[in-house]
Simulated assay, not measured.
Amino acid sequence: MTTTSPTARRSAPPAAPPRRTTSMRRRTPQAWLFLAPFVLFYAAFMIGPTIWMVIASFFNTSTVRSGLGSFAGLDNYLEMFSRDDFWSSLWHTLQFTLYTVPPLVVLSFVLAVLTNRAARGQWFFRLAFFLPFILPSATISLIWVFVFTPLNGLWSLPGRLLGLEPGNGVLSDPRTAMIGIAIATIWWTIGFNFVLYLAGLQEIPRQLYEAAAVDGASAWQQIRSVTIPLLARTTALVILLQIIASLKIFDQVYLMTSGGPGNSTQVALGLITDTAFTDNRIGAASAASVLLFLIIIVIAIVQQLISRAGAKREEAS
């Protein structure tokens, strides 16, 4: 009987990866067959309209006449840069993003940590926090318009109990209208981020918390040293998705305030919609859409670069 020495075992070359079998090659056409409906749908309703939007931004396209219209060159873009309402709509969009992204990231993380630590009733908290997210935007808007009603809304209930006179209302005051929309949005969409964080928490091994507890770490120290670092990728994903969603805000604003009062809540997509379907200027609206698209791309790239730089610093330390 021959034996192989440990040195021979260590020096043996690694086994070559298995080649693709004939059955795997035969499955490739079947995979494309199943993907075909989605690819066609995506090309017809996403890629195609996007290409047409970019082309129309260089023409005087209108809804009252067929075709692209006369060639305008960069006139539509120059017009948008010179319009005060375009810049104000971008500022309102950024303002909404600043109002919603930090609370949605922090609150969803806190709620996920508390739910994950709950000994009983986790199903109830999951249902309670995620249930508003499945409601349509029209339902959410109607609920919060009623809540913010000056005379009979729930928002003014504490004032009525204290005998105070009702004010103008949250949505009818230019100083608080955007804050009211942000509050409604946070209540509506926090469940999505909550589920992402909860899924990430359940992937963290319990042994890490037990080892930290043995070393004398408190609950906060465990969260700071174990939970937050291990959820860094989830946090980066939540921030990116939330920034993109906030920059594309439209439904709540249109249904709750229609851009008012006094255009104090007119956001970028609201301006684009008014330009396209009220002013019948598809070309100018397409130029504004392209500019908003570029802004979202730049912000997403910057956020990803910052996240990767932070991850590299953590790995180096």
Score class of each variant (00 low, 15 high):
26 R>W: 10
289 S>C: 09
242 Q>Y: 00
262 G>W: 02
237 L>Y: 12
176 T>G: 07
280 N>E: 07
153 G>S: 11
291 L>K: 03
147 V>C: 10
288 A>T: 02
253 V>K: 10
299 I>T: 13
86 F>C: 02
74 L>A: 15
181 I>G: 00
230 L>S: 08
316 A>P: 00
305 L>I: 08
39 V>I: 15
161 L>G: 03
118 A>G: 01
149 T>W: 07
125 F>I: 06
290 V>T: 13
167 G>F: 04
289 S>N: 07
165 E>M: 03
236 A>W: 03
48 G>A: 09
135 L>W: 04
56 A>I: 00
145 V>I: 09
54 V>Y: 06
260 G>E: 06
120 R>L: 07
181 I>M: 12
18 P>I: 07
96 F>W: 14
77 Y>Q: 12
202 Q>K: 12
310 G>Y: 09
309 A>L: 14
231 L>S: 04
194 F>Q: 00
138 A>D: 04
193 N>H: 09
210 E>T: 09
204 I>W: 01
110 V>Q: 06
6 P>K: 08
71 F>P: 08
23 S>G: 10
278 T>P: 00
78 L>Q: 13
102 P>S: 03
78 L>M: 10
273 T>S: 12
241 L>S: 07
127 L>C: 11
55 I>E: 11
47 I>E: 07
163 G>I: 09
275 T>I: 04
41 F>P: 05
310 G>D: 04
129 F>L: 15
133 F>Q: 06
98 L>W: 14
171 L>S: 02
43 A>L: 14
159 G>P: 06
229 P>K: 05
122 Q>C: 03
41 F>I: 09
153 G>P: 05
145 V>Y: 06
101 V>L: 13
275 T>V: 11
12 A>Q: 14
80 M>L: 14
163 G>K: 02
103 P>E: 02
205 P>I: 09
49 P>N: 01
123 W>V: 11
254 Y>F: 14
98 L>K: 02
213 A>G: 12
113 V>R: 02
283 G>M: 03
83 R>M: 07
153 G>V: 10
122 Q>A: 11
74 L>C: 06
70 S>W: 00
59 F>C: 07
53 M>S: 15
258 S>P: 00
179 I>F: 14
304 Q>E: 11
61 T>M: 11
249 I>M: 13
88 S>A: 11
140 I>S: 03
10 R>S: 13
95 Q>V: 05
312 K>F: 08
130 F>N: 06
223 I>V: 15
234 T>Q: 10
71 F>R: 09
287 A>N: 10
167 G>Q: 09
263 N>W: 06
250 F>V: 06
242 Q>F: 00
312 K>E: 13
155 W>V: 15
28 T>L: 15
76 N>P: 01
246 S>V: 10
55 I>T: 08
265 T>Y: 03
175 R>K: 14
59 F>L: 06
102 P>Q: 04
